[in-house]
Write a protein that binds this DNA or RNA. Structure first.
Lengths: 226, 226
DNA sequence: AATGAAATTTAGCCTAGTCTAAAAATTTGT
DNA sequence: ACAAATTTTTAGACTAGGCTAAATTTCATT
C-alpha cells in the first residue's frame, strides 16, 4: 500500500478527523455520529459537519446528510497510515528515549503528522519492525495490515490463570500513572490467586510480588494467557 | 535557557519567519529587509510585513516601518531553540536512520516544529550531545550557546595543506548529491596537491584517492586544518 | 535638490478552520 | 402517530496567513 493519493495533500486537521472517525468506527457497527466526533475532538458539531463535507469531496468518507459518516477504503488506508506512524513513534519514545507509558501520547500526536515515507520506514527498521506499541495496540505494517492480539481482560479470566500483561484498555494518563506507581508494566507476569466475590477485586501475584487490585483496574488490563 | 515564554504559543509559520530572520541577520550587519525575507520564504513582501507586525507585537523582533527588522533577545533565543532542534534531528536522521546528507533537510524542516522539551533533551542524550550537524554547522546547547568551528574553505588554503572535511557552505541538494556521487563525505581526510593557476581548480588526495575538483567546489567545502 | 526606481506598506480580498445562533431533520416517548 | 427532545445542518461571522493592486517611503543618480 502506498498512501500516496491524498497522503501528502492532507492537512493536520483533516488527518485528525480521519483518525478519530477510524477509532469511533471500530467501536460501534453503525456509522459515526457528528456529535461523537465533536466530543472526542473537543470541537463543535457544526465544525465537524463542515469538515466532513470537505473529506467527502476528497473521497475519504461516505457521507449522507443526517446519516452519519464512515471511511471509504481510501480513508481507511489513510487512517492506518497515521496510526502506524503514531504507534511507531510511541515505541521509539519508550525504547530509545526512555519515555514512560503515560508520556508518549502527546508527543506522538505531533510526530504522527510528519510526512516522509523514508522516515517512517527507516524508523520501523531501527525499532526492528515492532508488532505492538507500548500500550499493547497493534502496529499496521506498510501495507496497512495488522493482527489483533489474542488477549483477555484480567477481570474475565478464572482463578489460577497465568499470563503476561500486554496492554491496557483505558490509556488515560491517570490510569497509566497509577500502573507505574504500583509497579505494573508491560511484559510483567501475572497470576490470579483469588477473586473476591463481594466486589470483584483480585489478589494477584505479579513478578513474585503479591498485591490486591480492584475490579476496575482488572477490567482495564489485558493479559496474554499462557 | 528555557525557551518557555512564547515557545509553546508560536505557530509553525511564526517559527519559520524567526528562523529566516536569524539566518539573514547573521550574514549582513544591517537590519534584515522585507524583500530578503520574502525571497527566502517564497512568499510576498506584503505577507512578510503582516507577519513582522505580529512578531513585533509578541516582542520577538524590533521593527520600525521601512527600516527593516532584527531579532530581540527573546527572538534570538527562540531562533536558537528551533535551530537546535533542526540540527539535532539532522544528526538523528543520518546517524540512526542512515539518511544521506542531502535527504535530511526537508524532513528536519518538519521535525524542528515538534514541541516537547523532554523529547529534544532525550534526543540530545541519545545522540551523545553532538556539537555539529551533518553539514558541519554547530548545534546550540540547551542554553543557546554554541561554538563556530575553526574551519577554512578548501579554496583558501595553500598547497600541501592537510585537513578533514567538516562541512559545506552551499547545502543545496544539488551540491550535496554531487559530493555523494564523487565519494566526498564528512570526516574525509583531504590533502591539497596542486592548485591550477589558470582556473583555480585543485588536485587533491582524498582518502588515498586522487581527484581534481573545480574552484567552485573548493570554495564550498570547509576543512579543519591539521 | 529633484526625480525616477526600488522597496515597503496599506487596503481589500481569499481560504481553511473554527465559532454561535437558528433552522431542519431525525429519534423518542407516550 | 405525533409532539417533544435531540441531533445535525445551515447561515453568517471571525482569525491566521496568504494574495494582488495601489499608495507611500526611501534610495540612487543625476
Amino acid at each position: 500500500m502506498y498512501f500516496c493519493v491524498n497522503m501528502y495533500s492532507m492537512t493536520r486537521s483533516e488527518e485528525n478527523y480521519i483518525k478519530t472517525i477510524f477509532h469511533l468506527g471500530r467501536k460501534g457497527t453503525r456509522d459515526v455520529a457528528t456529535n461523537a466526533i465533536a466530543e472526542i475532538m473537543e470541537t463543535k458539531p457544526s465544525s465537524v459537519t463542515d469538515m466532513i463535507k470537505r473529506l467527502s469531496e476528497k473521497d475519504l468518507v461516505n457521507y449522507k446528510r443526517y446519516q452519519g459518516v464512515s471511511l471509504t477504503s481510501l480513508g481507511t488506508k489513510t487512517a492506518l497510515g497515521i496510526i502506524r506512524k503514531h504507534r511507531l513513534w510511541e515505541v521509539f519514545l519508550v525504547e530509545k528515549l526512555d519515555f514512560s507509558w503515560d508520556e508518549v501520547h502527546e508527543v506522538a500526536e505531533q510526530l504522527e503528522h510528519i510526512k516522509s515515507d523514508k522516515l517512517i520506514d527507516s524508523l520501523d527498521r531501527l525499532l526492528a519492525y515492532p508488532k505492538f506499541d507500548p500500550h499493547g495496540d497493534p502496529i499496521p505494517d506498510k501495507n496497512g495490515s495488522f493482527k489483533e492480539r489474542d488477549r483477555k481482560l484480567l477481570s474475565e479470566v478464572p482463578v489460577n490463570t497465568v499470563g503476561v500483561c500486554v496492554g491496557v484498555k483505558d490509556s488515560s494518563t491517570t490510569f497509566l500513572k497509577f500502573l507505574d506507581k504500583n509497579g505494573i508494566a508491560l511484559g510483567n507476569r501475572i497470576k490470579v490467586l483469588e477473586i473476591e466475590e463481594f466486589d470483584g477485586s483480585l489478589n494477584i501475584e505479579i513478578e513474585d510480588r503479591k498485591m490486591q487490585i480492584s475490579n476496575v483496574i482488572a477490567s482495564n488490563l489485558y493479559i496474554n494467557v499462557e
